[in-house]
């Protein structure tokens, strides 16, 4: 990779959209966006064949800034719109970008069914453990005991583990990184987009403004430091006991398996339907 970051920015950011973007200084969303752009660049995809769909929230604004076919949908529904796009035109390379509340609360049902259905789609979930845009309410990944504007006295519910949920729901490829692990994140997003089947990348990110501040986790740099300290790779995690893994984030590829892809299976359905004689 000898190409400069500036060259990639020029190629993929929209020039006719007035910046600045809506994200706070230090937000992890920019790191994820840059990793996505580098993946598209390395894969040499034409901008015309990429569709980027999002839901609502801070992550939902990402498509606005990028020069692809972009689709900013309703809250939690990015994957359902993406499903329609992909089925109607399987030649398009479709990526859905979501937040933790977006993908696993209001869009939780769509998320597990998209994993089960196994279309050739990529889902990137930026998990910052909070609803940032609306001002810091608890999400399905807010840790037990932490503070948010809707759990002022300590959160009493338990958090989803998004990547593990995707594995159980049947996704072909599931990986996790944090915004600290820049190079790993680059690799994982590219692997996910190359993967034939439903591919999920969960990215642990920092919302130091709405989550970190209330829980005394420090600024953006300090939160990224803690991601570094609390992460273990998949290979190392395999050698650790459950107690040793307590409070740790496993990063790397959790699942990579080959399964029938529904767009390709539907092509077979078309052939079978066309050759079946009989009733209308």
């Amino acid at each position: 990779m000898s190409v400069s970051a500036q060259a990639i920015r020029h190629e993929y950011l929209r020039h006719n959209k007035k910046f600045p973007h809506v994200w706070c200084p230090g937000c992890g969303n920019g790191i994820v966006m840059a990793a996505l752009l580098r993946a598209v660049y390395r894969m040499e995809l034409s901008k015309d064949e990429v569709v980027l769909a999002s839901g609502i929230g801070c992550s939902g604004r990402m498509p606005t800034y990028l020069d692809f076919n972009t689709l900013h949908t309703t809250h939690g529904r990015a994957l359902t719109y993406a499903t329609g796009v992909k089925l109607a035109n399987p030649a398009l390379n479709v990526v859905a970008i979501m937040g933790d509340g977006d993908a696993t609360a209001i869009g939780g049902n769509h998320f597990i069914h998209a994993a089960r259905r196994n279309l050739n789609l990529t889902a990137i979930i930026i998990n910052n453990s909070i609803y940032g845009m609306t001002g810091g309410q608890y999400s399905p990944t807010t840790p037990f005991g932490s503070t948010s504007t809707t759990s002022l006295y300590g959160h009493i519910e338990h958090a989803f583990s998004i990547a593990e949920l995707a594995v159980t729901a049947g996704a072909s490829f599931v990986a996790r990184a944090t915004v600290f692990h820049g190079e790993l994140l680059d690799r994982l997003i590219e692997q996910a987009m190359e993967k034939r089947g439903f591919a999920v990348v969960e990215v642990i990110s920092n919302c130091h403004v709405q989550y970190g501040r209330r829980n005394k986790l420090g600024n953006a740099v300090e939160m990224l430091q803690s991601f570094k300290e609390n992460s273990v790779t998949v290979t190392r995690a395999a050698k650790l006991s459950a107690e040793e893994l307590e409070g740790k984030t496993t990063v790397g590829v959790l699942t990579d398996r080959e399964m029938p892809i529904s767009t390709e299976e539907y092509q077979k359905v078309r052939q079978r339907a066309s050759t079946t004689k009989g009733k209308v």
Binding site: A53, L71, T73, T74, R77, T80, Y81, A82, T83, G84, V85, K86, L87, A88, N89, L92, N109, H110, H113, Y266, V269, R270, R272, A273, S274
Partner: peptide, 27 residues
């Protein structure tokens, strides 16, 4: 499927409505 079209049964009507919008956006 006989006319090169696509049918999908979604997980609910929210998803069904979204999917037809997505498909329509591809023409």
């Amino acid at each position: 499927p006989k006319v090169d079209g696509t049918f999908i049964q979604m997980e609910d009507e929210i998803a069904s409505m979204a999917a037809i919008i997505g498909a329509s956006l591809t023409g």
